[in-house]
Design a binder for these strands. Structure first.
Lengths: 173, 173
DNA sequence: CCGCATTGGTTGACGCTACAACTGATTGCC
DNA sequence: GGCAATCAGTTGTAGCGTCAACCAATGCGG
């Protein structure tokens, strides 16, 4: 117990307290809006978006779990509920009979298309529109530095949300 | 549905995706360390710290709930568990017989004193030490701008964590 | 001082997530 | 080929948070 802890300076402490407050409040705000307007949690929304952006609108469960930072049991439960609602379908994978493919249905695509505008509005209203262009760049850098530690393989980086214009994905057969 | 949604630019989207990833991963990291080393969730730690920093090491439940961004039922459940573990005590308030005072016990103070160094290490290792001094200032500003929207009354601002040196609080009777 | 809305707090039921245990398929190794 | 280890996924259980219902105390208007 060599008590050589480097305690936080005033500036560090102030920034940390605010970051903690942000990580507590922001997820609630996102969930509240999506739940109210589309009956989806932010996690479910992210999962559907990830599938929508994938080739064939399909992903193996393990891959999807990794991209959405979910444990496999969690994703399995969520997938069951989404399937019961007709938003995704699950089918056995042809090449690896252990694996399960999850695919967004048309209804799922419709739902996220319908939910996207409200969600983007929320993101703007609560975060992006409150920051200058410069601050958005700073945020990118700061979060990037932290994620290099927390998510070194960049599992979450490539994912979650396309916010491009138009429908979430081309509905090619 | 005038489809006049302002979609996100590439820069905005990139920053947003990273912020979301951060808000998903950071709480897990904090909980994991505290749970492993002290058997406390980050929320419980924050509540104990808030009490430790209060006059008489005591707060009314409602006040504590507000400061820790908890609903009253949530805090009530948590308080019951903390009380069962001997980390806090609850007693009726003298001036308002509806109210309940929560107070950290000596054992509670001991626990957070013991947990603090490891927690600060985690905060440094996962966030602060990965940023430049300048970035810490930027983070303070950015989070501040967002919190002005999400927490306009600054309920969480004044709270949660003192990371000053030495024991969490003077143990004056 | 009485009636009623409001506030402080607790409790119980339900939903979601983590964890452990398990099945079935696959890979590696001899 | 066969056995062990690993991997993909599901299921059950327990813990935590939310919501609704509830009780007790307060305060306010008449």
């Amino acid at each position: 117990m060599s008590s050589d802890t480097r305690w936080l300076s005033t500036e560090e402490s102030a920034a940390w307290v605010r970051l903690v407050a942000l990580t507590e409040l922001l997820p609630n705000a996102l969930d509240a809006q999506l739940l109210r307007d589309a009956g989806l949690t932010h996690f479910e929304y992210g999962a559907l978006m990830a599938l929508a952006g994938a080739p064939e609108r399909t992903m193996v469960m393990t891959e999807l779990a990794s991209r959405t930072n979910a444990t496999l049991p969690r994703l399995s439960h969520v997938a069951r509920r989404l399937e019961e609602r007709g938003l995704i379908e699950r089918s056995p994978c042809r090449t690896d009979r252990r694996a399960t493919n999850a695919r967004v249905t048309e209804a799922g695509l419709d739902l996220i298309d319908q939910a996207a505008p409200g969600h983007v509005d929320t993101v703007r209203a609560n975060v992006l529109d409150l920051l200058t262009e410069e601050q958005i760049g700073q945020l990118y850098q700061i979060a990037g530095a932290v994620l290099a530690k927390l998510d070194p393989e960049e599992r979450l980086a490539a994912t979650s949300c396309q916010f491009s214009e138009g429908p979430a994905v081309a509905r090619a057969g």
